[in-house]
Design a protein around this nucleic acid. Structure first.
Lengths: 124, 124
DNA sequence: CGGAATCCAGAAAGATACTG
DNA sequence: CAGTATCTTTCTGGATTCCG
């Protein structure tokens, strides 16, 4: 199918914007095995602050990718869960992961080679 | 294969970082049909400034995803071309595009529904 | 525990002008 | 045309603190 036209004002940009965020894909991935509480997510994911996690969850919720469930009881218990749409996004996320698995070494090698040739490292 | 562990310090993050940039994927996509000159890229892609395009190209080059060819002649003629590794990245990019094609409507609908319910729109 | 409120540093990206 | 140099604005993510 090939979905041409990522360019100009294309709808595919919508998906790219979802990825152009450090944590969106990571959090979705961390939710793949079922509902999770924020504290669990922070354990599974390394190095994400409470604030940033909350922001990310709001963002995903806003885009209809996750649902928030507040179970009432002693204290507070909240869980987040993938929606069907959110779950469907795991497919392309997995494709990205598979690529990294296959080609990550070559990218790192290219980075080191560029540095060795005195090229400054762009931010990313 | 499923490439578990996107979490903590995993190599898959390397790939996510490549995507967590507004323009990387778009520029790679614009190069899919063969070598392109910067001015051509700016035409195909909408709304990218010369400066940002250059930065993006340097970044992709640094990661070994594209090559730069400077043809000498009257004036200046430069072309950028995908490396084999860069071309391989089109596969996951295409998966993302296919997802957007299939589910983009639902995401946009969710956004509008959230707004209608008075939820503020997170940045992304 | 969940999460909201601040404050802050750094990075990304846009606009503009300029050089070869 | 390709690329650089500034300047400015916006965004992101991190740290800290406080409330229910």
């Amino acid at each position: 199918m090939t979905t041409d036209a990522f360019l100009a004002d294309c709808r595919a940009r919508l998906a790219f914007d979802l990825f152009s965020n450090t944590w969106n894909a990571v959090v979705l991935w961390a939710l793949r095995d079922g509902p999770r509480r924020p504290v669990e997510l922070r354990e599974r994911i390394g190095g994400i602050s409470s604030k940033v996690l909350t922001e990310t969850l709001r963002r995903l919720q806003f885009n209809g990718l996750i649902d928030r469930h507040a179970h009432q009881g002693a204290g507070t218990r909240v869980e987040y869960e993938l929606t069907p749409v959110g779950r469907s996004l795991l497919v392309p996320i997995d494709a990205v992961g598979a690529w990294a698995f296959a080609y990550g070494d070559q990218v790192m090698a290219a980075q080191e080679a560029a540095c060795a040739h005195g090229r400054p490292s762009p931010t990313r």
